[in-house]
Computed example of a mutant assay.
Amino acid sequence: MINFQGKVALITGGSSGMGRAAAIAFAKYGAKVVVAARREDQSQAVITQICQMGGDAHWIKTDMRNPEQIRSLIEQTVEYYGRLDFAFNNAGTEGKFAPMTELSETDWEQTITVNLKAVWLCMKYEIEQMLKQPGGGAIVNTSSWLAKGGLVGSTIYSASKGGLDSMIRPAALEYAPHNIRINNINPGIIDTEMLRRFFHPDDDAAKPFIHHIPVQRLGTSEELAQTVVWLCSDATSYITGQTISVDGGYAIPGHRVA
């Protein structure tokens, strides 16, 4: 049984999708939860739901493009709850998908800033806090199957997630002696708000993806959230520096029936 009583979890991008599901999951297991996001109405809806469950949650408005707000986020979390045990760095952007010759330096900078630099900063300040307190901590970041795969138009997004997968390995080596574990989840085709900006799960555009997912369906935010909670629990105390695919087998190499 997972028991997070007395623990504090920080979730960035916690107002919707996988972040929202993770915030609720951490609260169900007893953790106090900080939701970091820009959108007040959606964030407050998550806080209200957690409180109605009997949990304890707090919203901190944070723009991942702003380094000072990221630093302040961790400071405010500790000021409010006294410590930081778990961090799910989930905030991200799909950026602009287009052939490379149609993309600009601005497109590059915007996606890399949110998906890679901001996660690096989150980890930096989260680890600094975890080093100050007894017990260490666990960090999980949202990467993507596109860190190892590709779609037409995904050069910048794939680069941002590939960089994120590479970054956690040395970070895990650096802080394993301090009982701080760092892992990534690599979601496959998950039914989220971000996915629905590309296509609806019931559209014809979704059919080729579903056809090539061995379990023959899209994943859910709740399934991702359970993996995040598991990676923060004592059940995975010997796992660090890993990228965990949660994709229904989509990324398995091999023959697919046309």
Score class of each variant (00 low, 15 high):
residue 38 R to E: 09
residue 17 G to P: 02
residue 45 A to K: 09
residue 107 D to H: 10
residue 172 A to D: 09
residue 198 F to K: 07
residue 116 L to V: 10
residue 33 V to P: 03
residue 153 G to Y: 08
residue 199 F to I: 14
residue 46 V to G: 14
residue 24 I to Y: 06
residue 181 R to S: 00
residue 100 M to I: 00
residue 89 N to I: 11
residue 46 V to H: 08
residue 126 E to T: 02
residue 234 D to M: 09
residue 190 I to P: 02
residue 83 R to Q: 02
residue 248 G to D: 05
residue 18 M to S: 05
residue 88 F to Q: 00
residue 214 P to F: 13
residue 115 N to D: 01
residue 68 E to F: 13
residue 135 G to L: 10
residue 213 I to L: 09
residue 70 I to Y: 05
residue 84 L to A: 04
residue 217 R to S: 01
residue 45 A to E: 14
residue 195 L to C: 08
residue 45 A to C: 12
residue 99 P to S: 06
residue 135 G to T: 01
residue 143 S to G: 02
residue 46 V to C: 06
residue 1 M to C: 09
residue 145 W to F: 14
residue 199 F to C: 14
residue 186 N to R: 12
residue 166 S to D: 08
residue 55 G to K: 10
residue 185 I to D: 12
residue 247 D to Y: 02
residue 10 L to N: 00
residue 183 N to F: 13
residue 197 R to P: 06
residue 181 R to A: 06
residue 221 S to D: 09
residue 97 F to D: 03
residue 33 V to A: 04
residue 222 E to L: 10
residue 229 V to H: 05
residue 95 G to A: 03
residue 114 V to T: 05
residue 68 E to T: 11
residue 150 G to F: 12
residue 22 A to R: 13
residue 148 K to A: 04
residue 205 A to Q: 13
residue 30 G to W: 00
residue 78 V to D: 04
residue 7 K to G: 04
residue 1 M to E: 08
residue 164 L to C: 11
residue 245 S to A: 15
residue 179 N to L: 01
residue 25 A to C: 03
residue 252 I to F: 13
residue 125 Y to F: 04
residue 58 H to I: 10
residue 77 T to H: 07
residue 146 L to S: 11
residue 176 A to N: 10
residue 248 G to C: 14
residue 62 T to M: 06
residue 69 Q to N: 03
residue 200 H to C: 07
residue 209 F to N: 11
residue 178 H to P: 01
residue 147 A to N: 12
residue 37 A to P: 08
residue 23 A to G: 10
residue 43 S to M: 08
residue 7 K to T: 03
residue 134 P to T: 01
residue 84 L to K: 10
residue 106 T to N: 13
